[in-house]
Amino acid sequence: MIKARVTVTLKNGVLDPQGKAIEGALGTLGFSGVGHVRQGKVFDIELESADRAKAEAELKAMCDKLLANTVIENYSVELA
């Protein structure tokens, strides 16, 4: 079995109001010197396959078809 982690982040230039709010809250908590905060998503996915190349290709297809909205998001795939 292969364990994978997919990370989805907003593309540069896409406004992230949630990241902005978190940035503000960190400042309120006294964490000074915090630059920009961008919020993203992490998916931990288990695949039955043992073929790493195939698994990676499949994970990318999953990102393109569902996990990420490529209009506004980038993704990266990492195999454990």
């Binding site: 896409v14 406004l15 109001p17 949630q18 909205n69 209009v71 506004i72």
Partner: peptide, 17 residues
């Protein structure tokens, strides 16, 4: 319709949250 690709663009969280 946007997620299905039948219209262009995306709808995001309101700027005011």
């Amino acid at each position: 319709l946007l997620e299905a690709g039948l219209l262009p663009g995306a709808l995001m969280r309101n700027a005011s949250l």
